[in-house]
Design a protein around this nucleic acid. Structure first.
Length: 727
DNA sequence: TTAGGGTTAG
């Protein structure tokens, strides 16, 4: 089309809103081609959309209208504005140009609606391969697998791009087998198609397959480029193999590979995940001003992975442009390193900033933290937050909900979430099974395992640990035996569970034989189970054998000394008790302090024996005295096992706050003090006095109170404890 | 003209 005719068209457009505001045309006085080339340059080299738009505006100001070659670029860059452009294209008569037409269709295919793309596609009578490819790619983009496949099958001719589109399509839906099928079938491969397959593997956790393909590529003489290296390096990261990391670094060096920004970031992450945090930090520092949020985040999670929360936090506080991932990395860092309270605090800070919307990843960490704290009240608040903020959950999100409810003892809620899920994975089952196991619901756990098999989900290592634990806690000896025998290659943990099961039901000699026949070296868990069984059944001979092994395996674990000492005590062998205690003192082994917490008023209150740091400490001790008096009057006398401290005069401060609040907090302290006994004696019946006190409070309160000690969760309602067997 | 790139979670 000649320039003068374009001028005429545009002049006409002036009179027709809404186009009038877009175009201010005057006589051309500069070279349109120069601008066009610049536009193309900005778009293809820099990916700088804003610059394209600015330049476009500039062109208009200068009175230039871009020629036909610029249209594809423009349409890609301006997104929805492209619809206006589409109108221009048609009015200007460029609709028949095959490149413009293809780009236009691609715009609709990528930005939607896909139906418009299809309409354009169907209207074409001289379709090129590129048109077919754009359409197939568009269908994949919108998750229309069937349509994509049908169209691919109908293609009159295919090129390497058509095949590659299918490979990436299947990779995106995590169907790597189909992706590989297309990869193997394609008549010709190039570096891009290899990279598509390689990245598919890398992004879906098939690191070994990625490494395999990389070796094939190297043997077939295809030269890797930066994209290849990024995929290979990130596969190595997920394998966490330091030797592989070292050989990759060597290879990069030998081949004199230019390390671009992406390769460097991938290398940073690889070093952080393969144990060389110093090297990762060197790369991080070398990047200087070129660091972006991804590099910062990778470094932060590098530190949290090794538990160095101080360095992680120091970086987090310095990130110039935080994004959701920065917050998620730090919150997950706290949650995974036992700092649940800090994780929740940071989450609240994040929610308060309003600049960042917490996403599913954030909530997974937050729910995990609630679970670890046993904070049901807070957990329910989080569930509310999810609905209010319309945060959509995938399987892993629902799994963390199951985890939270299970850890908080709300097995009914955990089950409800599980039932509501449209799709479940092995972790969904494992989380619920483990929950049932902890609470001794053996048959429920077993039922779930059969259900998962029916649904075609294979039980894994964790499933069997869960089910065996459930049998152990539920006293299901025969069922446990059968399951153990059905495990193909039982691991050391499965043996530990079986020893625990046999030991708890009193079959100690059988447990001993099982240990002797183990094909691998037993770890501390195996002997620990045996020692615990010896404590339950007062077996000194076997207990000594187990303890001896444990002192070798974990000399600093005070629990083993205490258990052995208690076995002696149960038989009245006081000299041996003293001998063990002396060995403990001389070995510098210190008892770990007992602690517990309660959730009250949405806050977590943590208590250590003898600790006075709690803000309500004065009240607590006052109330403790009252309780003690009541208990004595009721005929319950606190003995040495249950430390009920005398209240000192100066602690009798004036009461502040409501009575119920004080009761709840006092209750916590009481359990805390019993907690020390629980941990040491491991026989909860000695805490009878505490139990009575707790019952009294919950009766008085006439409401549910939830408490967690180190290992278990208790729910008291009108004086009834949900874990009666526990006490 | 259409295909391939790094970080976070159970």
């Amino acid at each position: 089309m000649h320039r003068s005719s374009i001028k005429q068209l545009i002049t006409r457009l002036h009179a027709q809103p809404p186009y009038a505001h877009t175009i201010s045309y005057s006589a051309p006085h500069s070279n349109a081609l120069v601008f066009s080339n610049m536009l193309n340059f900005f778009h293809s080299q820099m990916g700088a959309q804003n610059d394209v738009v600015t330049l476009f505006a500039q062109m208009q100001k200068s009175g230039l209208w871009p020629d036909v070659f610029v249209y594809p670029t423009l349409i890609k860059s301006v997104g929805n504005e492209g619809i206006v452009l589409h109108a221009h294209v048609l009015k200007l008569g460029f609709g028949c140009d095959k490149y413009v037409r293809n780009a236009m269709m691609d715009m609709y295919a990528k930005c939607g609606p896909i139906e418009v793309a299809r309409q354009l596609f169907d209207e074409m009578c001289d379709k090129t391969v590129a048109d077919w490819n754009v359409m197939v790619s568009g269908y994949w983009h919108w998750g229309c697998e069937v349509e994509a496949c049908n169209l691919f099958d109908l293609m009159p001719q295919r090129n390497v791009i058509s095949w590659t589109t299918m490979i990436t399509g299947y990779s995106k839906v995590k169907d790597l087998k189909s992706a590989r099928r297309y990869f193997d079938e394609m008549p010709q491969k190039n570096i891009v198609s290899c990279n598509a397959m390689l990245s598919g593997y890398a992004q879906n956790g098939f690191a070994e397959e990625a490494m395999g393909l990389f070796n094939e590529m190297m043997n077939s003489g295809i030269q890797p480029n930066a994209t290849t290296w990024v995929a290979v390096i990130s596969s190595c990261s997920s394998l966490g193999d330091p030797c592989l990391a070292e050989s990759l670094v060597k290879m990069l060096d030998e081949k004199h590979v230019h390390l671009n920004y992406f390769v460097k970031t991938a290398l940073l992450d690889m070093h952080a995940k393969c144990g060389s945090l110093e090297t990762a930090r060197e790369i991080f520092d070398e990047l200087g001003v070129r660091k972006n949020s991804v590099t910062w985040n990778a470094m932060i999670s590098g530190y949290t992975r090794v538990g160095d929360l101080t360095s992680a936090r120091e970086l987090f506080d310095r990130v110039p442009k935080r994004n959701v991932v920065s917050w998620n990395s730090m919150i997950a860092g706290y949650a995974q390193n036992g700092q649940s309270a800090m994780a929740l605090e940071l989450f609240q800070e994040m929610a308060a900033t309003k600049d960042f919307k917490p996403d599913e990843v954030t909530m997974v960490s937050v729910l995990s933290a609630c679970g670890h704290l046993g904070a049901l009240e807070l957990g329910n608040w989080v569930v509310n937050f999810l609905t209010k903020n319309r945060i959509k959950l995938s399987i892993s999100g629902y799994n963390s909900l199951i985890f939270m409810y299970s850890k908080c003892g709300s097995m009914n809620d955990a089950r409800k979430v599980f039932q509501k899920m449209a799709a479940r994975d092995v972790i969904s089952y494992n989380t619920l099974i483990t929950g049932f196991a902890v609470y001794g619901h053996g048959s429920e756990a077993l039922k779930l395992m059969f259900k998962m098999k029916d649904e075609g989900i294979e039980p894994d290592r964790i499933t069997y640990i869960g089910v065996l634990t459930a049998c152990s806690h539920g006293g299901l000896l025969e069922a446990g035996r059968k399951i153990f025998e059905s495990i193909e290659n039982p691991g050391v943990d499965h043996y530990a569970c079986m020893v625990d099961l046999l030991g708890r039901v009193g079959k100690l000699d059988e447990a001993k034989i099982l240990i002797e026949r183990m094909p691998m070296n037993p770890h501390a868990g195996v002997y620990g189970s045996l020692l615990n069984a010896c404590r339950i059944h007062k077996r000194v001979d076997l207990g000594e054998v187990a303890a001896e092994k444990l002192f070798e395996l974990e000399p600093q674990n005070s629990g083993n000394y205490v258990l052995l000492s208690n076995i002696y005590a149960s038989r009245g062998r006081w000299e041996d008790v003293e001998r063990v205690r002396k060995a403990m003192r001389e070995g510098g082994v210190r008892k770990t302090t007992g602690w517990s917490w309660v959730e009250y008023g949405g806050k977590m209150h943590k208590f250590i024996v003898g600790d006075r740091s709690h803000a309500r400490s004065g009240d607590i001790y006052c109330l403790l005295a009252e309780l003690r008096k009541k208990m004595r009057n009721a005929g319950y006398i606190a003995d040495k096992s249950c430390v009920l401290r005398d209240v000192e005069e100066e602690e009798k401060e004036e009461m502040v706050g409501t009575h119920s609040e004080k009761l709840a907090v006092a209750f916590a302290l009481l359990v805390s003090e019993a907690g020390a006994v629980i941990r040491v004696v491991k026989n909860l019946r000695v805490c009878w006095d505490c139990h009575m006190a707790i019952k009294m409070i919950s009766e008085l309160e006439r409401r549910e109170i939830m408490v967690r000690d180190n290992n278990r969760f208790h729910c008291f309602s009108s004086g009834q404890c949900s874990c009666n067997d526990y006490w």
